[in-house]
Nucleic acid binder design. Structure first.
Length: 884
RNA sequence: GGUCGCAUAGCUCAGUCGGUUAGAGCGCUUGCCUCACAUGCAAGAGGUCCGGUGUUCGAGUCACCGUGCGACCACCA
């Protein structure tokens, strides 16, 4: 198969995914004897479409999987999607809203059906987009957090935790979203600063002896006050403790109590205590045995307890109440005040602390084990500093509220008897009361936090609670690749639940990658309108270009700023690879298959050089992949391919290919093909499509085979050739020196020049002579003359390189004043460098204390610079003579 | 309030173990349609490595202080 003249990513990319799927290349069964390597995908929510974060996350995983597969591992990458309880429910609710109905009108059953329909569509879309990205999961193992198997795992975990007393049910103050009408965990509340008022209210003493002033940002909660608290050591209020106050408006008698949680410095030092609507107050209330009065309901409307304000929305109530308090004189003053408001992470509604009966996981025992597993290194974070974040959270963890008053999710496996009130938690559905035999049984209506099921993902997807082959082979997984935003939500929960139920960590490594931001460093969001859609990029530049860009920008511990220019740059790289391949293929003899020389015997200098450079690259690329330094992988391959293989070897190969020596031609063809083949394999995990396309063009007889299963290049020390690198270095220096002069002197590019070389080291002349053709071609020289040290040519431009002087006679070509200026500049630079080195060397302490080889290097360098300066100065003197 | 991260070329960023002359991409300047590629080739300009102090023969790199930015955590009403 020949390559088209122009690289068209779209047509290349659509071809290969079906090919890979049909060939079963993504399945671990393809390589049953390999060492296991496994990853579970962070299951995308079924709420919408793929965004740049997914593109990055999955590209990185795909790179690891493809690399390991090529390297002989038996790779399992488990795909799937997350039902994303509250998020998905909200999406479907919004759709209903557009049709003018709400979920209550539809009813629970019908609503859940609607969500399943949505899931079918959305899930399919997401999966298709992942496939378009080239994601090499084993799609035959695709899971969904609410499929039958995972639902069974959820029940099993719930029942076991309950039976062990690690799940309990009780009436506590929790975070409540009055729009979603559900409880939220602490993590699901996002604090945001907003403008508020600090109101100073005065509560009269019941005995008529004065009053106390308190400060609050939420005056409407005063209707639920059951005490006022002061600090026990606060002199101002010492005699007040134990007295009774009369709550304005409602006239309730409330005590003044002493509690150390009160900050003497804040406001007036007196705190109104509302146990039903504030977490601190709840604690204080519990300790002092205060009653809890809920004045807000589940929709954040005022309850009957709010007296005249019953039925009002919380903010309407605030406005009205403040007016009334002002009239009555209870409001002393109010001032603007910045307050932190907790908002629902899914709908941004201000959440309320709300007293209700919920289910909780007693988390400390689980957290301790999960903490230890990272401390002792059974699981390692990359970059390591995320471990601190993990530790801090685990050490201060609080019980996890797992019940949600939603309709979309795993229904909690608890049943209540309508007759005797018995509560039963069970793996199987319950129809008859186990205590009284009654058939009046109803199931708990609450569902589980969506993170409860995703916390089981690493083992539930492999068939747990059954002891499957997959579990035995692939658990613990090798690495988890995810963003830092879900370390607590997800990574921490998987650690705790994995250790609890599998007795071992869920993953050995956790690679935390960057957040993808826009080019100005802003978080991408629909409302800001700065979202770069991966699918649009893939259409415009190609999937390979997008993948390579994301990887190239993925420095550890740093956010990614994505810009169109960068993507263009890497699209150009793909094009470069394409054209290099076209050149290599063009020069293969038709019908004959390229042969790598068995022992690499009889190679030319350029061949030895490029193979040596290739193997340096192979070694470094592998090391970088093993260390998750993805950006370096990209940079190494880019640098080698473009600036060594294309810029130098391809150009040099043209000389050999034009030669009359058929052996040399043949050898060059083989090396070209060998290096290209290695580049393709190195690059394949990053750019899977273009490499597969070119690989097939290079191996026309292997149409059924795939680059996916070719070995990843292996470092071969015997091909590292320092001598070849040194010799090529000399040739490259000469070529660059001549090009530099030509360019600076503005000499016409087509004009052939004559160079006079004065070797400064013995080997230079032989080395240059033996590869003169290279130099003549790439530096466009007509003739190279060699001359012993002694009389210098007059009226010539000079370049001094390591090992030789290069003189280019310019008589009649340019104004020699140009060269004078150029030499003066050059001498300035050299003198500058030399001064620096000499300063160092003249420091006795440096010579004495620095390691021998460092000092030696400096001495060499000083000598070199000295010689260079001398040559340049002599040349300058000669020019001045001519001018004079 | 606590914790963590970041600050290097015009822009976006690399820089491993402290060691010669601090790199890349994009942008910019100059010259080239050289038969793989103008999505290209060649050459070049461009740096107070945020500021300060310290450790060291030697600091972009290590320590401390400061400044600026960002993120996360947190019950000051």
């Amino acid at each position: 198969m020949a390559l088209d003249k122009t690289y068209d990513p779209i047509s290349v990319e659509k071809r290969w995914f079906p090919f890979w799927m049909q060939g079963g290349y993504f399945r671990p069964e393809k390589n049953p004897s390999g060492q296991p390597f496994s990853i579970v995908i962070p299951p995308p929510n079924i709420t919408g479409l793929l965004h740049m974060g997914h593109a990055l996350n999955n590209t990185l995983q795909d790179i690891l999987c493809r690399y390991k597969r090529m390297d002989g591992y038996r790779v399992l990458w488990v795909p799937g999607t997350d039902h994303a309880g509250i998020a998905t429910q909200n999406v479907v609710e919004r759709q209903l809203q557009q049709q003018g109905i709400d979920r209550w009108q539809l009813g629970r059953e019908k609503f859940v059906e609607r969500v399943w329909t949505w899931r079918d569509e959305s899930g399919r879309n997401i999966v298709n987009q992942l496939k378009a990205l080239g994601v090499s999961c084993d799609w035959s193992r695709e899971r969904f957090t609410m499929d039958a198997g995972l639902s069974r795992a959820v029940r099993e975990v719930f029942v076991r935790l309950y039976n062990e007393g690690l799940i309990y049910r009780g009436r506590y103050l929790i975070n409540w979203c009055p729009r979603c009408e559900t409880a939220l965990s602490d993590l699901e509340v996002e604090p945001h600063e907003s403008d508020g008022q600090l109101y100073h209210l005065t509560y009269p003493r019941s005995d008529g002896k004065g009053s106390v002033t308190i400060a609050t940002t939420r005056p409407e909660t005063m209707l639920g006050d059951t005490a006022v608290a002061v600090h026990p050591e606060d002199e101002r209020y010492r005699e007040l403790v134990g007295q009774t106050l009369t709550l304005p408006v409602l006239g309730r008698q409330i005590p003044v109590i002493a509690d150390t949680r009160v900050d003497k410095e804040f406001g007036t030092g007196a705190l109104k205590v509302t146990p039903a609507h504030d977490f601190t107050d709840f604690e204080i209330g519990k300790e002092h045995g205060l009653p809890t009065i809920s004045v807000l309901d589940e929709k954040a409307r005022m309850t009957q307890e709010a007296g005249p304000y019953a039925g009002l929305d919380r903010y309407e109530c605030r406005t009205k109440l403040v007016e009334d308090l002002q009239q009555s004189g209870a409001l002393i003053r109010s001032e603007p005040y910045k307050i932190m408001l907790g908002r629902c992470y899914r709908c941004q509604t201000v959440v309320e602390p709300f007293l209700s009966t919920q289910w909780f996981v007693r988390i400390k025992p689980l957290a301790e084990v999960a903490l230890a597993a990272v401390k002792d290194g059974r699981t390692q974070f990359f970059p390591t500093h995320w471990e601190k974040t993990y530790f801090a959270w685990m050490e201060n963890i609080r019980d996890w509220c797992i019940s949600r008053q939603l309709w979309w999710g795993h229904r909690i496996p608890a049943w209540y008897c309508g007759d005797c009130g018995e509560m039963m938690v069970s793996r199987e559905d319950i129809t008859v009361c186990t205590k009284c035999g009654s058939g009046k049984i109803t199931q708990e209506t609450d569902v589980l936090d969506t993170w409860f099921s995703s916390g089981l993902w690493p083992f539930s997807t492999m068939g747990w609670p059954d002891q499957t082959e997959d579990l035995k082979t692939f658990y613990p997984t090798s690495v988890l690749v995810t963003g830092f935003d879900i370390i607590f939500f997800w990574v921490a929960r998987m650690m705790m639940l994995g250790l609890k139920f599998m007795g071992e960590v869920p993953f050995r490594h956790v690679y935390i990658h960057a957040l993808v931001r826009d080019e100005r460093g802003q978080k991408m969001s629909k409302t800001k309108g700065n979202v770069i859609d991966p699918l649009e990029v893939m259409e415009a530049y190609g999937t390979d270009a997008l993948r390579f860009t994301l990887v190239a920008l993925s420095a550890m511990g740093r956010d990614i700023r994505l810009s169109a220019e960068r993507i263009t740059g890497y699209r150009n790289f793909a094009n470069k690879v394409w054209n290099a391949a076209r050149f290599v293929l063009m020069n293969q003899v038709s019908g004959s298959k390229f042969q790598v020389p068995e022992k690499y015997e009889g190679l030319g200098l350029a061949d030895r050089w490029i193979l040596s450079r290739l193997h340096h690259t192979i070694r470094e690329v592998r090391q970088a992949l093993d260390d998750y330094r993805f950006n370096e992988v990209a940079a190494l391959i880019y640098q080698f391919t473009w600036h060594e293989f294309c810029d130098w070897y391809l150009e040099l190969s043209k000389i050999a290919l034009e030669s009359t020596d058929t052996g040399e031609q043949e050898r060059t063809r083989a090396v070209l093909a060998t290096v290209l083949d290695a580049v393709l394999r190195l690059l394949h995990p990053l750019m899977p499509f273009i490499t597969e396309e070119i690989w097939h063009a290079l191996h026309p007889d292997r149409t059924e085979d795939s680059i996916m299963v070719q070995p990843y290049p292996v470092f071969d020390l015997t091909l590292v050739d320092d001598e070849a690198e040194q010799r090529m270095g000399l040739l490259m220096d000469v070529i660059r020196a001549v090009r530099n002069i030509r360019s600076e002197m503005n000499l016409p590019p087509g004009q052939e020049l004559t160079a006079i070389v004065i070797p400064k080291v013995e080997t230079a002349e032989t080395q240059l002579r033996s590869h003169e053709a290279y130099v003549r071609r790439l530096a466009r020289l007509g003739e190279i003359r060699y001359q012993a040290d002694g009389e210098r040519p007059r009226g010539a431009a000079l370049a001094v390189i390591e090992g030789a002087e290069i003189h280019l006679p310019l008589a009649g070509l340019v104004n020699l004043q140009e060269e004078t200026k150029r030499l003066e500049r050059e001498i300035g630079k050299v003198a500058n460098d030399l001064a620096g080195v000499q300063r160092k060397l003249s420091d006795a302490k440096f010579v004495e204390r620095a390691p021998e080889e460092v000092v030696e290097k400096e001495r060499d360098r000083a000598a070199q610079l000295e010689e260079k300066r001398l040559s340049l100065e002599k040349s300058l003197a000669r020019l001045r003579q001519i001018e004079a």
